[in-house]
Amino acid sequence: MELKSKNLLGLEGMKKEQIELILDTTETFKEILMRPIRKVPTLRGVTIVNLFYEPSTRTRISFELAEKRLSAELVNFSANTSSVQKGETLKDTVKNIEAMKIDIVVVRHPSPGAPHFIANCVDSSVINAGDGAHEHPTQALLDLFTLREKYKRLKGLKVAIVGDILHSRVARSNIWGLTTMGADVCVCGPSTLMPYEIEKMGVRVYSDLDKALDGRDVVMVLRIQLERQRSGLLPSLREYTNTFGITKERLKRLNKGFTIMHPGPLNRGVEITPEVADGPYSVILDQVTNGVATRMAILYLLSGGEKKLE
């Protein structure tokens, strides 16, 4: 099996075998992170630019570590300290960076589709590290890996994604990934934060949290994106917490051996109580650990010689 792709832009349309290849490769890379020297020389001489137009802690550090552990060379770019401030367009920025000879662009951008646009402008591989409310494929892949590691399967797993679905690229990528792998996915959140026609992605929609949690194996709690809440979509955070916050009490409805996930950063006491976030069933920090291995696997799979022969 080959990934047969130059870029990783999203999980929409990705085949089951491709996802499996990435997850299997991730398993190998996870072992490297346990070695005394957590580094392999695989991507020596490969130059990667991390193009971040939005703030990020986890994704950015995770990509940086993955790149360093594969011995790649990396350059970091953040929009607020660059010529973007002088009005340089995205296309010009990327073209100029590519002129300095780079192989892979990792991009996080507030506009959906920005990575696709970049992929059309440059010859380098492009990895989407989050584009607006559209997709965040590496996050979904690390979530899939974390679940597969725990349950040894993804097929038939009952997953509830709870919170602000409307603004969530994590939710979208996870819905594509999970449904492709045969999991049963439902979403739950306030109707103002539920995208129109989301059922068409193959998920059930609940507005009652208790019903959504009934008989589920996994709850993915999404962050209430405080920076995007100014437009009055929520009456108040307290009301949100009362209706959709994940509390210990509510966990009783879940199946035995359930799992709580959260892509981070946490708003403790808003979408999730500290008690639940730190509970023994929470895999929030495993997700972060697995993130590095997942990104190493993706970088490895995308950097084969095939694309250079095209």
Partner: peptide, 17 residues
Amino acid sequence: LYRDDVQTKLEQPIIQK
């Protein structure tokens, strides 16, 4: 992962544990 032809090979080898 320690090969010297990872970036030039036609097919990316499947990595085993």
